[in-house]
Every structure is written in C-alpha cells, then in structure tokens.
Design a protein around this nucleic acid. Structure first.
Lengths: 169, 169
DNA sequence: TTGGAATGTCAACAAGGCTGACTTAAAATC
DNA sequence: GATTTTAAGTCAGCCTTGTTGACATTCCAA
C-alpha cells in the first residue's frame, strides 16, 4: 500500500486521504496520548502510584462491585499483574474487596472513601484537559473524535467500551 | 468540579457536555490506544523489538538525518533509555548513525534498507487500521478527530507535532 | 583556553508487563 | 457424593522500558 485513497474504484465511502495525512493522524495519537496521561501521572507520582493503579481505580469507580475477572478482561492484563496493583490498593485502604454473596469465590471491588477521593482528583485533572480540548476544537469536532476512536478499537474492546458507556452517549 | 458544563455563565464557547460524556471520551482514548498499537505490537514481537524501537524507527523515518538530541526531545525519554534502543537498532543494521559534518559531536540518524523495510511494515499495519477507522467514521469525523487530539497535547508537544507535520495537513 | 553542549556508557534500580506452577475454596456437573 | 471446573491468590523468575547518578569524550564557541 502506497496511497490507497488515490486509487480509483475503492467504494462509495472513499476518503481522499494520502498516506501522509493518515500518518499525521498516527502522530497526533502519539502526542495526544502523552498529554492525555500527563496530568494524572503527576498526581500519581506524588503518591507512589502508577498508571496501572489509575486504571484499576478508574474502572472500579466506573463499575462498583465489579469482580476481579471482569476487571481482568477490561484491562487486558494477567491476574498476576493486576493482583500486584490491587493488593497495594487494598492494603493501603483505597479499595475494598467483598466476598460475593451468591458466589463466594468472587471478590467484588469497591472504592473506599479514600479511593473515591483519589479517583476524583485523577479524573478531575483528566476531564479538565479533555473539556478544554473539546472547547478548543469546537462542538462539531467532539462527535468525530469519538467516532474515529471507536472505529479504531478492536471489536472485542469495542464491545467492552460500549457496554461500559451504554445509555446516553 | 462536578458538572462544569451545566453551570450557567461559562462563556460563549460552552459545550454542553456532562462529566459522564467527557468520561466516555477518556475511556474511548484508553481503548482506542490499545487498538492503535495492537498491529505494530504483533509485528514487533516476532522480531524481538518493542514499542520503544517502533517509536525510534518511526521518527527517524519521518526526519531522516535527525540528531540524537532532537530525537530525545521528541520522544521525551532519557538519553540512557533511548541509547539502549538505538544501540540495538544500529547493531542489528536497521539504523545508521553518521557523524555530523559541521558539528562532529552530533550523530545524524538514518534508516538502512532493512530499517526502512521494518518501518514500512509497521506503518502499513498502523495506517491500514487508521484508514479503516476513518472510513467507518466518515469524512466529517476525521477533521474533528485531529482537532481534538491536537488540542489535547501539551503546548510543547504540540509545537513538535506541528513542526513535524507542517506543510499540507 | 576553558566552559559547556552533544553524545555515549556503566551501574543500579523500579514499574509493570509476562509465563509457569501451584493452592484454596466454592460452584457446577456427572 | 465424587469429580471437574472456575475464581482468586501466590511464588518465583524473566523482560522491556523507563529512571538516577556518575563519568568520559569530543568539539564548538566565547
């Protein structure tokens, strides 16, 4: 593939984008992701936590009572890797793991007050930047942004994403 | 901040986005970035390289003859970290480091034929997914996508990005 | 000529991924 | 009721990729 978009006869939804233009999108993702994580990273560093802790806290906040295996499938890491992070969060009183009522093998995860406070400070920082970016880009841009990102996901991850965010996108 | 957008009197460029909606954008970034790196990661794994090598190869391709310190500032890592990666690429004949003509302290970095081949296979994979996402999202979405990403970058990184991509966005 | 910049390198360390092996408890199934 | 499967946790060890700190070399520029 050298310049797919300039080849005629590629179907009705053809976009006339050169490889160079697509490449710019790739670099935009790279640089933007750095910005995306910069604010939480600064907060986490002070507390001796990392991005892995952030992700766990985020999704526990998002789905209170979620099980360990559910979290594993969302985060896409091994249980050993998640366990290291989760143990730290539990030991330090940010997360509570309750034994399941129906199925006692399961652990249901909840943020404690302290955990919720950390989550709030992390997501406030991240949302502030996000909101500023939306404002700078304008109302029309937001929808396109989300559409492209969604289309970029692996189908499996897209399902997870849609399940999480369903109800009033 | 609980719901900035619903508070009246926030200025003329106000976007009526709830915290929940902004949060979905955050999750979209998270899941999309996984997809974004998935294809190159698969290729790299076979060759015993990692994302760090990919980034170096990408930006050397992008700016042939770039110096080590310029690459450092783009990648935002320490020279020790970059050096490890660069040494591997040079030792294995993917990158060539030429001593500067004017300033002999500088090393100018170039991809060899083998390096260019790897770069091509990585970026083909990544561009294919990107192009598919653009196609799925539609023409209008692409501009919004880029605008939001650009607005999300740290100002310093945005300058780097714009310098790289200037001339026909 | 001397100070500082660009580069490279050594050593040591940490976070956060991974695999593999194994245990425990409880649910599910035969 | 016995067996198998599932959910979770744990131990050990490995890899990549980031970090600091110290130090050497080379060479431009004031």
């Amino acid at each position: 593939m050298t310049n797919g978009a300039s080849t005629p006869g590629m179907g009705e939804t053809l976009l006339f984008l050169t490889d160079e233009q697509v490449r710019k999108g790739i670099e935009a993702m790279f640089f933007a992701y750095r910005g995306f994580t910069a604010d939480p990273d600064r907060i986490l560093e002070k507390m001796d936590y990392g991005r892995a802790h952030h992700r766990a806290v985020h999704f526990i906040h998002r789905s209170p009572g979620t099980t360990v295996s559910n979290l594993l499938s969302i985060l896409g890491v091994t249980k050993q890797s998640l366990n290291r992070v989760l143990r730290a969060l539990i030991d330090e009183g940010l997360v509570e793991a309750r034994v399941g009522r129906r199925d006692k093998r399961e652990r249901h995860l909840y943020l404690t007050a302290a955990g919720a406070e950390l989550e709030r400070s992390l997501s406030d920082a991240q949302r502030t930047r996000m909101r500023a970016a939306y404002r700078a880009a304008g109302p029309g841009a937001v929808q396109g942004f989300r559409q492209v990102l969604e289309a970029m996901m692996d189908p499996e991850l897209r399902k997870q994403y849609q399940k999480l965010t369903e109800g009033g996108a």
